[in-house]
Design a protein around this nucleic acid. Structure first.
Length: 505
RNA sequence: GUGACCGUAGCUCAAUAGGUAGAGCACUGGAUUGUGGCUCCAGCGGUUGUGGGUUCAAGCCCCAUCGGUCACCCCA
């Protein structure tokens, strides 16, 4: 076999049917957003890597398609938000706020490909700059839901969260900035699973490494180091873990986890604070659920920790508005441990999930509020901003076939009788197209019989046979491939005849 | 990133226990030089993903690597 250049891993080709469907979805949603005042813009696919530093921290740096070219650090955009913010700063600062933008196009992330997951995929989204927080938040969440409505996708789950709760808590811990940010970005991972917590733990450990000599001695005599951890600390951790009922297999395993954690995290004040934060995040996660009940429970939790109720009040208003737009309470899940991958969110965060017909659940949409991103990428003032983006490829499997457009199939194939009739065939095709028909020409150069075979194989309903006889009268022999019926038709009249013939199919 | 399974013609797949690599579809030509679908005939097509190893002998066994699928992990 000849060596063939393969398609890149995680990249996909878009074939005619999928392309049509994708364009239909994009057009429908874009039209809808334009009705809401969102002007379509686009930005370069390639940007300076620095643009994405604040959104993709060091943790996600490896997920960028970044490279160095001519002494410049460049990067294929991993998302639109930062680019649109840059676009705003470059062109719109003199315009009055709020400003609304929509976009659609490819983005790139270097990740392990999987089902419904590509290294290049298409995002369609909006950014809303300025406006009052609660109203702007409500507008975009409502838009996201209405867009699904527009596509007749009704079975979905709307997850709402608010970074303000956890960040309010962390702020009080007086952690250093780096630790606080890391903790926040790990929140979702921590609350998801035992394994996730362990991974997060490792990252936090790296932040406050213990005494090197002690660690080495632990490696050689793991059990011998036991005495170094105080009885009190072990019991505290133990009861903490008990309280939030995580299953650890058996006591030995749990003790091991507790011990290693306390040991490795180091012994400073920071460690105690982090433990505190972990506990709080667990509690937040445990309380996720649907309104209205969950609000009471969350309010009680915030009161217990003496935290500001403002974020919760915002969410409550938001839920009320979203419900008025036809989203059922059962579809809404409040999850204050929702973190989202990127690190710039400051307030509302939300995601929309849905299950396809195979029962596979995928995230369709994600977004939130990021009031400090503008400053992070070089603005000299903060500009309130929020937005969201849909993954177009993930919407496609959820669409009903009835809604999707039919393929633009070819209506007739022009078959030249002999090679000398090709110029006339092309002329006929051109004339028919000018009349609005979709016409292909058989360019195989092998006669009428073979030409008709081509038409059948390609499932084209009509053939236009053209030779000397037809050219003499400026006509075609129009043959119906289904009935075998033939009639000679003037080229000028094709537009009237062809559509009628087709309807027989 | 981790684990499991898989990789043979353009596509879908065969190949006994390790013993000379096959079929259908598709494609090209013909039966049919201005009339198709059906049929028949012929042709084209391969370093068995790649590299190493074991063996008298490897598509098959072993190792590595690349790619694919699924489940985790993570994300849209």
């Amino acid at each position: 076999m000849k060596k063939r250049v393969e398609r890149l891993r995680g990249m996909h080709d878009t074939l005619p049917e999928a392309y049509q469907h994708q364009r239909w979805v994009t057009d429908s949603l874009s039209t809808f957003l334009a009705q809401a005042g969102y002007a379509t813009v686009d930005a370069p696919i390639l940007e300076y890597s620095d643009l994405f530093l604040s959104s993709f921290g060091q943790e996600l740096w490896q997920n960028l398609y970044a490279f160095r070219l001519h002494q410049r650090d460049l990067c294929l955009r991993p998302e639109y938000t930062a680019s649109i913010c840059r676009l705003y700063l470059d062109h719109y600062q003199q315009q009055p706020l709020p400003q609304r933008f929509q976009y659609a196009g490819p983005i790139f992330r270097y990740e392990a490909p999987g089902r419904n997951r590509y290294r290049q995929h298409t995002q369609l989204g909006v950014e809303l700059f300025g406006g009052q927080t609660i109203f702007a938040d409500a507008e975009i969440v409502q838009l996201a839901c209405d867009m699904l409505q527009k596509l007749h996708i009704t079975q979905y789950r709307l997850e709402l969260g608010h970074i303000g709760v956890a960040s309010g808590f962390i702020k009080r811990l007086r952690l250093d900035d780096h630790a606080a940010r890391l903790l926040l970005s790990l929140m979702e991972q921590i609350s998801r699973s035992e394994e996730g917590e362990r991974a997060a733990q490792a990252r936090l450990e790296a932040l406050y490494p213990g005494n090197t000599a002690e660690e080495q001695s632990e490696d050689t005599t793991a059990r011998g180091a036991k005495g170094a951890v105080s009885e009190l600390e072990t019991r505290f951790m133990s009861s903490l873990l008990n309280g939030i009922s995580i299953s650890f297999g058996d006591d030995a395993v749990r003790n091991e986890v507790v011990e290693r954690f306390l040991w490795k995290v180091g012994r400073g004040e920071q460690r105690r604070q982090i433990l505190h934060a972990l506990e709080f995040m667990r509690a937040l996660h445990a309380l996720s659920g649907s309104p209205p009940l969950v609000f009471d429970e969350l309010r009680a939790l915030l009161a217990r920790y003496e935290l500001d109720e403002q974020p919760l009040a915002e969410l409550e208003q938001l839920v009320a508005i979203v419900e008025q737009c036809g989203v059922h309470q059962q579809q809404i899940v409040l999850n204050l441990s929702l973190g989202r991958g990127v690190s710039y969110y400051t307030g509302l965060v939300f995601e929309i999930h849905a299950r396809d017909e195979d029962g596979f659940e995928a995230q369709l949409c994600g977004g939130g509020r990021y009031d400090q991103l503008m400053r992070a990428i070089g603005s000299n003032r903060d500009i309130n901003a929020c937005g969201f983006a849909f993954g177009i490829e993930r919407l496609l499997p959820l669409l009903s076939q009835n809604d999707l457009p039919k393929n633009e199939y070819t209506q007739a194939l022009v078959i030249p009788v002999s090679q000398s009739d090709v110029p006339y065939a092309l002329q006929v095709a051109r004339s028919a197209r000018l009349q609005g028909l979709r016409i292909e020409v058989d360019v195989n150069g092998h006669g009428v019989g073979a030409g008709l075979k081509v038409a059948v194989k390609k499932q084209i309903a009509l053939a236009m046979i053209v030779g000397e006889n037809e050219q003499r009268i400026q006509g075609v022999t129009l043959r119906d491939l289904q009935t075998g019926e033939e009639r000679v038709t003037p080229v000028d009249a094709l537009a009237e005849i062809v559509p009628h013939k087709e309807q027989r199919l």
